[in-house]
Design a binder for these strands. Structure first.
Lengths: 331, 331
DNA sequence: CTGAAAGCGCTTACAG
DNA sequence: CTGAAAGCGCTTACAG
């Protein structure tokens, strides 16, 4: 080991690097040598020698969705920083069975922990259970708490409530809502957040102002159109995600309904879309990249402590969200 | 090594796995043992022992653009399959100097090859030169050949020409073009492809039908609007990318210009956007995920052969593109 | 607090 | 074609 250049044993270098108790002189010498030689620890050697494996598996829908992009980004950024290797297995969206196969494949390849994507992870959990994984697992970007799984997520209920209250504060009363089908995990918190805000401020929820759609632009366009064609249309529409919200924007444009003058529109997720439409879309930001980094960090910590004590239950990390008010609500 | 379970030496297992000449009996015994034990080679050990390093560094703009998502996806998929480790360094778009720093950082961390993203990679190349990297480098998704760098890309010139010819074949003569500023590498091939097709079919290029914009929806909206407000507006508009094309779609909607009845619109890149607008957008598909996988494979091969012979010059892999004709052109 | 010993699972370079 | 030897760069578990 080159850093014995400092006149000390390789062991001492290892000790310094790993934060073992060392003398000040020792530390200084080692750090000087490291600096001078531009030394960087060899990950492969470290992985081989240490009992603790540092491979994390990732289930990933092979799509180009901005949220997926951010997830991958955050995971790989953390992996690079922490020296863990990432293994990616593609999944096909509704096929939960294939998910379990992929998890098994990852474990066979040495993954000591698994990172699960939103929706798919939650659906696997409700179909299976944590024990099936037999290793630390985190579902990143889960819409809500998952009974059997650790999560890193925002409080979507609170976010939906806040954004609805923001709309009420801007003077809206007839606030339409585009909900997701109930089978999707993201349905409940966003919908209930909307309801809670309406109730709390004594605003009546008109059934005619509620429409359902399944994620996509076209569904937002159609559902938004139905609401706008009402004899007494809403003055604001809160869509369960950005794609549907951009559909609403298009529905308004087609009908010459001015946004935000005659109609305010709000989305959810604040993806790349939100700022590539006109007018720029108010949306709830889900900091997926940071959440995914956090998930990798926590997974690594869990892996390392598994050898030692505390096999605790699932934990939830709830990170703060922000609401970006933009021109689509007159901001 | 567990697979000596087969009653042979670890060396033989290694030979079998690495395709060294072995007897049939040997191979059978080893494969049986592998099967039985569910054995998977330890990447870390392999990396440590082999002279050939298997770490590839990746410069990456930390954005949520669908093309970035696909790039990351493809790279990580190939990395998982080939057992190479990926290191990611975030870059900030126009700061080429930071790019060189990041490359140095990656090399220090053990990266034996570098994967460069579109635009940024090409701009670094024209500002620096291959020798600066001192290792195999590929610029994935480059718009055109790069004199000093290997590339994996589509023939954007040909694609732009084809799509323009498709428009001509559909009866259009007044075909507008939204070009990128000349400083961006993607400008030239797309623009020249358009010009070549027009010339080839004897269709006059009207200067008034050419507008310039810088990638974003808003720019497409504005530039598209200018063309549509002309006394004699174009019947088709070819935008240099999907964001601008969706801007054109919005500009048409605002003016109640029916797409595709009165106006056809074409984009470039065929990102997630193209199918999340109305009408679905005709666009040139850049298979970024597959291209990025290919780039990782080639980089690995180059790393392995570097120890041996042939330090050849930069190579270009041109993969086939497809044009997805959709409703925005009446298909 | 420090370091000599042994080993992580593979491969290279070589001898049979 | 096959395998005994040595070593990749680190760490664990221990003795000083």
């Amino acid at each position: 080991m080159v850093a014995a250049h400092a006149g000390v044993s390789p062991m001492s270098v290892s000790n310094v690097l790993n934060g073992q108790p060392t003398s000040v002189a020792m530390r200084a010498a080692v750090h000087a040598a490291i600096e001078e030689l531009g030394y960087v620890p060899n990950l492969a050697a470290r992985q081989l020698a240490s009992a603790a494996p540092t491979i994390i598996g990732l289930l990933h829908a092979n799509d180009e969705h901005p949220v997926s992009a951010a997830l991958l980004n955050g995971a790989l950024t953390a992996a690079t920083r922490l020296g863990v290797q990432l293994l990616l297995e593609p999944i096909v969206f509704p096929e939960l069975a294939s998910g379990w196969e992929k998890v098994a494949a990852l474990r066979r390849r040495g993954a000591a922990a698994i990172l699960l994507p939103p929706t798919f992870g939650e659906m696997m959990a409700s179909a299976g259970g944590r024990e099936e994984f037999e290793c630390p697992v985190i579902c990143v970007g889960a819409a809500d708490e998952v009974p059997t799984l650790s999560t890193v997520r925002i409080d979507e209920f609170a976010a939906a409530q806040e954004v609805t209250e923001g709309l009420i504060a801007r003077g809206h009363r007839r606030i339409g809502f585009l909900r997701l089908p109930a089978k999707f995990p993201a349905h409940a918190p966003r919908w209930h957040g909307y309801l809670a805000a309406m109730r709390r401020h004594g605003v009546t929820v008109e059934p005619e102002l509620i429409a359902e759609g399944e994620f996509w632009f076209q569904e937002g366009l159609a559902a938004g159109g139905r609401l706008l064609d009402l004899p007494d249309p809403p003055t604001a529409i809160f869509a369960s995600n950005d794609e549907m919200a951009t559909g609403v924007l298009a529905a308004a444009q087609i009908r010459r309904v001015a946004v935000p003058k005659e109609l305010s529109v709000v989305g959810f997720e604040d993806t790349y879309f939100a700022q590539n439409v006109w007018p720029p879309l108010t949306s709830v930001k889900i900091p997926m990249s940071a959440m995914s980094s956090t998930a990798v960090e926590r997974l690594l910590r869990e892996i390392r402590s598994v050898a030692k004590p505390s096999p605790s239950g699932p934990t939830s990390v709830v990170v703060p969200h922000t609401i970006n008010w933009r021109a689509s609500t007159g901001d």
